[in-house]
Each structure stands twice: as structure tokens, then as C-alpha cells.
């Protein structure tokens, strides 16, 4: 009989971390995503048409964005380049989260029909497997749109750049992706109990993304407070972005809060991880 290397004892890791004997979360994601890409390519005509359609849709999205920004003089006291900056940062952050974790919102279906079982017996973190489930390349489109607007706004912005501000831009985009991703994972975990909750979660993620594309000054103060303190979406871009733009935040907060996003992300990720594990524990499968 084959001797199996006894795995070094590890604490039950956070989702996505490698276990001693298992393949790591990232590796699992890569392997499974590659399988899905190949899977879709087996239907060549369909694949070609989807590719073409996505290209056209993405292209028109760019056109719409261009049209929107060429007609907007300013919004809530924010100039054109500033609005573009807000749009670009949140869209890129959301796009990255969507690329990596967007598919977890489909877990409800696997919970309903019990096919999650087959993922649970593989030696890889389930979260990574679910995230790579039915992976499609078109998700790159959303990120590229966001990046396009972000780079464009950076070219147009007339700011006194400091080292801190320069560092804050990539930091806020990555932290923002982390916050969006955490909301997605927590929402997916919720589907272990409420199996049709996907739309509720989408209203937070997609809705949050849309909200953050605009300056906070155009929204009611209560709403701004809500996304600052309750659902910490404001940390995705409003707080750090307003620091970069040198503008005051509508809710009175010290300037240093602009640098909180990585911390907020860490807290969100931990909370989402806990939700996810609790969800998995309560998974009931289906009668076979």
C-alpha cells in the first residue's frame, strides 16, 4: 500500500490558505479555472460568439462611459476628472473582486442540488473551487474597463502628488477588491441557510459599486454614514479617494481614516471567513 506523507498539523486555515497535504487555494483556482476555459472552448462556435459579443459589449461600455464623462461638467461639486477617478477606482476594485470571487454567488445552486458534495471530497479549499466554478474569461472585461477609466483620470487629474498619495492609489484599489470580495463571500455563506439570497448580496456588491462611482456629496448624509460605519463600502474608495483628491469627507472623520482600508479589509476578510466556515458546517447536502 502506498505510504502517504503525514501532513504537518496545521490549524484550520483561513479560506484560500494551503493545507499541509492539499493543493493551495490559488493553485486549485488556477487548475479549475483552466478546466472551465477548456470546457467552454469545446463548443467552438458558441465560444467564438460569446467572445465577440463580450468584446462588443465591453466596447460599447467604453463608449457610454466616454459619452457620460464628456457631458458631465461636474457632479456634486466634483470635476470631471475627479468623478472619473472615483469611477475608475471602485470599478477596478469591483472588477478584481468579481474576477476572483464573483462566481461564489452561484453557490446557492450547488447547495440546492447537492453537487457541492463533489467539491467537498477534493483536497482543496472549497472556497477556491467555488470561486473558479464556471470561470469565464469575460470577467476580464470589467477590470479592463475600470483600469481604463482609472488611468485616464490619473492623466487628467491636476494634483499635488505626494509619495503617500501615489502609494494610496494601488492600496485602495486592492483593499477595495478585498472589501467587495469579503461581501461576496459572506453573501455566498448566507446562501447555505437562505438558498436564494444571491440577489440580496448582488444589491450590496453591484449596488455598492454603482454608489461609489459617484461623489458622496450627492447622496443623503444618512446613506453616507451607513456605508461608512455599517457596511464599510466607503473605505473602498470614498475615504481614501477624497484624501488623494484633497477634498473633505461629508461625514466628519479624521484625515488618517483614509489609510484605514487595509485594516478594514482584514477585518472584513476575517468576518467573511468565519461566515463561510459556519456556512459550510451547516451544509446539509441533499438526500442522494
Amino acid at each position: 500500500m502506498a505510504e502517504h506523507a503525514p501532513g504537518a498539523p496545521t490549524a484550520p486555515g483561513a479560506p484560500g490558505t494551503a493545507r499541509a497535504t492539499g493543493v493551495g487555494g490559488l493553485a486549485a483556482f488556477r487548475i479549475i479555472a483552466a478546466m472551465w476555459i477548456r470546457s467552454t472552448m469545446t463548443y467552438r462556435f458558441s465560444f467564438a460568439m460569446t467572445l465577440l459579443a463580450n468584446f462588443v459589449v465591453t466596447f460599447f461600455d467604453f463608449v457610454v462611459i466616454l459619452l457620460m464623462f464628456t457631458h458631465v461638467e461636474g457632479l456634486g461639486g466634483f470635476g470631471f476628472a475627479e468623478v472619473a477617478f472615483l469611477y475608475g477606482t471602485t470599478s477596478t476594485a469591483f472588477g478584481l473582486a468579481d474576477l476572483a470571487l464573483g462566481q461564489v454567488s452561484r453557490i446557492g445552486r450547488r447547495v440546492r442540488d447537492g453537487t457541492l458534495d463533489t467539491l467537498l471530497v477534493r483536497p482543496a479549499p472549497v472556497l477556491a473551487q467555488v470561486a473558479a466554478d464556471r470561470f469565464a474569461l469575460r470577467r476580464l472585461g470589467r477590470v479592463s474597463q475600470g483600469l481604463f477609466v482609472l488611468v485616464w483620470s490619473l492623466v487628467l487629474l491636476d494634483l499635488d502628488w505626494t509619495v503617500l498619495k501615489v502609494c494610496l492609489v494601488p492600496l485602495m484599489v486592492l483593499s477595495g477588491a478585498g472589501i467587495f470580495g469579503s461581501v461576496m463571500v459572506a453573501g455566498a455563506a448566507f446562501q447555505f441557510w437562505a438558498r436564494d439570497a444571491a440577489e440580496v448580496v448582488n444589491s450590496f456588491t453591484y449596488g455598492g459599486n454603482t454608489l461609489l462611482q459617484y461623489p458622496p456629496t450627492i447622496f443623503a448624509r444618512e446613506l453616507v454614514r451607513g456605508v461608512t460605519f455599517v457596511l464599510p463600502l466607503a473605505f473602498v474608495n470614498w475615504l481614501p479617494a477624497l484624501y488623494v483628491l484633497g477634498r473633505p469627507y461629508p461625514v466628519d472623520l479624521p484625515e488618517s481614516t483614509a489609510f484605514l482600508p487595509p485594516l478594514v479589509t482584514a477585518v472584513c476578510a476575517l468576518a467573511a471567513g468565519a461566515c463561510w466556515r459556519a456556512g459550510l458546517r451547516s451544509y446539509r447536502s441533499t438526500g442522494s
Binding site: 484550520p12 492539499g22 467537498l120 477534493r122 483536497p123 458546517r281
Partner: peptide
């Protein structure tokens, strides 16, 4: 249930 991925190899 605690060490699912470790068990999966066996």
C-alpha cells in the same frame, strides 16, 4: 469534518 482536505487524500 475538521480536517476534510487532509482526509481527502486518503
Amino acid at each position: 469534518s475538521r480536517e476534510r482536505t487532509k482526509l481527502a487524500h486518503r
